[in-house]
């Protein structure tokens, strides 16, 4: 288990890449990966390859956990068994922190394998903040919440997404996982100004950044995690870390998964931008 701090540019660990990572320890580009984020849900299994591989990875690299199935903002009771399993695995692997999405994926007995958006209302803020506090009590530490990509918005929103997130972070006293790609996708999908969005969120609460690629569906952007990070998103990212310092960042790629080498190249771009931001910070 590693005690190294999370810094620099990591990669979202995907099962098909594990063999290459474990076998490629003599490859400088693989050895240089400073940390991995895992989708913890893929490893909440009793045994077999996933668990063994996770142990092996955790012995070589620092880890952080990212969840997709908590349904944080749902009105259903929190799934305590699920959270306890995450906590137990986190203790076992020494993962540094746990993040989840600011969304819901269940209502009553219906569950959905997706991250569904919320209405930006005072009532939602109160509910979600309370849920985050509950999760943090169970985990015994502050969690990170991630802004999601959306394709629809409630006509009764009482505030902007940036204001909504800022209020929740403040009330729940949690950290933020800023997905710059999601913020970009939403700004295009809803015709909003990305600068306004980013100026609303509390930058000091941002503990991690996600970077990913989207698919242009002509009349909207689909957050498909199936492409390289676009130039527009790199620009927004570079500006954000220039203004706010070198925040641990990572490349997410889920669909049409390319060879590890492609992700390593994307990671190298993020790493260079982080180093530049570090130098600017030193000069300032």
């Amino acid at each position: 288990m590693s005690n190294r701090l999370i810094s620099g540019a990591g990669i979202g660990l995907r099962i098909p890449h594990i063999h290459d990572i474990l076998a490629g320890q003599n490859d400088q580009a693989i050895a240089n990966i400073p940390w991995f984020e895992i989708v913890v849900d893929n490893f909440l299994v009793e045994g077999g390859f996933n668990r063994t591989a996770l142990r092996a990875i955790s012995e070589r690299y620092p880890l952080i956990f990212h969840g997709v199935a908590l349904s944080l903002a749902s009105l259903n009771p929190l799934n305590l068994d699920y959270l306890k399993a995450i906590k137990s695995l986190k203790d076992e692997t020494g993962a540094e922190w746990y993040s989840e999405h600011l969304s819901f994926s269940s209502s009553g007995s219906s569950h959905f394998p997706d991250l569904l958006p919320l209405p930006y209302t005072e009532e939602t803020i109160a509910h979600v903040s309370e849920r985050i506090v509950q999760v943090q009590d169970i985990m015994g530490e502050r969690m990170l919440i991630e802004n999601i990509s959306s394709y629809v918005s409630c006509q009764f929103n009482e505030m902007s997404e940036g204001e909504f997130i800022a209020e929740i972070v403040q009330r729940a006293d949690c950290h933020l996982l800023l997905d710059i790609n999601n913020a970009y996708v939403n700004s295009v999908n809803f015709g909003e100004h990305l600068g306004d969005y980013l100026s609303r969120i509390p930058a000091s609460a941002v503990k991690q950044i996600h970077l990913a690629g989207f698919t242009d569906k002509d009349d909207f952007l689909l957050d498909a995690h199936n492409n390289p990070v676009t130039d527009e998103v790199w620009k927004v990212y570079a500006a954000f870390i220039r203004d706010n310092g070198p925040i641990p960042s990572m490349i997410e790629w889920d669909s049409d998964l390319p060879p590890l080498d492609t992700l390593l190249k994307e990671r190298a771009i993020a790493e260079r931008l982080l180093e530049s931001a570090q130098q600017i910070g030193h000069c300032a």
Binding site: S107, L116, L118, T121, C154, F156
Partner: peptide
Amino acid sequence: MKEAPINLAQWQQQFALALVD
């Protein structure tokens, strides 16, 4: 602030219903 004419429960229920039916 004026209260939204929809609450969170209605939003989640109607979203879920529309996805399955």
